[in-house]
Amino acid sequence: MAKLAFLGLGVMGYPMAGHLARAGHEVTVYNRSAAKAEAWVAEHGGRHAPTPREAAAGAEFVMACVGNDDDLRQVCLGPDGAFAGMDRGAVFVDHTTVSAAVTRELAEIARSAGLGYVDAPVSGGQAGAEGGQLSVMCGGDAAEYDRAEAVVAAYARICRRIGDVGAGQMTKMCNQIAIAGLVQALSESLAFAQKAGLDADAVVEVISQGAAGSWQMANRHKTMAEGRFDFGFAVDWMRKDLAICLAAADEVGAALPVTALVDQFYKEVQGMGGGRWDTSSLIARLTR
């Protein structure tokens, strides 16, 4: 069992840190809103700290799951940042979906301070975090990854090192690119079924057993047809991720025409007041 810190107790981080505590690790948490950290400690034990630096002091591993590039820099750097409190040899494991550029920047700063750094963004949404069934895609030094993997296993269904630092973030971009097109296609399929006067449940029962089947179809077709979009990962966050994908595509010379189009569709959903709806809400712009 390890001494850990977990920074960021949002819809993903809160249950992820809980799995670490249930696995027997000694966990100190930090959250920008202290009330959330106090609630976590009341539920799971452990302790909370007022700054990332104090949370990270003496920890073998420091996990983070915050919002974006700027949030990550804020919890890592400066006199109250996690890097200032970590002991040499400790490993920082970042579960935030951020740009590969900020990942490489922070990894270099960490290495200069004698710290390990593994970028480890996750997929599986709120349900995956709560059930301890996340897919974790990692980049970093192989030895540092091997050390962290046993800890990450507390909330992972699968955890894989893809390559050096930044490879985890680039893999997460592949994940978001695939999801964007898939959700749009499912939205169009369901909207078409409705307008054609078909029984959508019967349609899905048949086509889900063939090549069209997907997790999204199996788990979201009913709620999409009913116009219920309160199942985790928000449109605002998806647009943040897709902006990262599109910027990276320019850097590597990849064409993402469908991703760019779906990003604009999500912008329309935001304009409908759906910024906090989950990503399956793409169907709303087709059925309004």
Rank of each mutant, 00 (worst) to 15 (best):
F6A: 11
F6W: 11
P15M: 13
A17G: 14
A23D: 14
E26I: 00
N31C: 12
R32G: 12
S33N: 15
A34D: 09
A34W: 03
A42Y: 10
A42D: 10
A42M: 10
E43Q: 14
E43M: 04
H48D: 12
P50F: 01
G67S: 14
N68K: 06
D70I: 06
R73S: 05
R73Q: 04
G78H: 07
A84C: 04
G85K: 05
G89C: 01
F92G: 00
D94I: 03
T96L: 09
V98R: 07
S99G: 10
V102A: 05
E105I: 00
E105H: 00
E108W: 03
I109W: 03
I109Q: 10
L115K: 06
Y117P: 00
G125T: 07
A129I: 06
E130M: 07
C138M: 08
G140R: 06
G140D: 10
R147E: 09
A148P: 01
A148H: 02
A148S: 13
A153T: 06
A154G: 03
A154F: 05
A154N: 08
Y155L: 06
Y155P: 06
I158Q: 13
D164Q: 11
Q169A: 13
M173D: 08
I177C: 07
I177P: 01
I179Q: 09
I179H: 01
A180H: 03
L182M: 15
E188Q: 12
L190P: 05
A193Y: 09
A193V: 10
A193G: 13
G197L: 07
G197F: 03
D201R: 14
A202Y: 01
E205T: 12
S208F: 00
A212D: 10
W215I: 09
W215C: 02
Q216R: 00
Q216G: 08
A218E: 15
N219F: 09
N219R: 06
R220P: 01
K222R: 15
R228D: 09
F229H: 13
F233S: 01
F233M: 02
A234L: 04
V235E: 08
W237E: 02
M238V: 12
L242G: 05
A243G: 14
A243S: 13
C245Q: 02
L246G: 06
A247Q: 13
V252Q: 01
L256V: 04
V258T: 15
V258I: 15
T259G: 08
T259Y: 02
A260G: 15
D263M: 00
Q264M: 01
Q264L: 02
G274C: 06
G274M: 05
D278R: 09
R285P: 00
R285E: 04
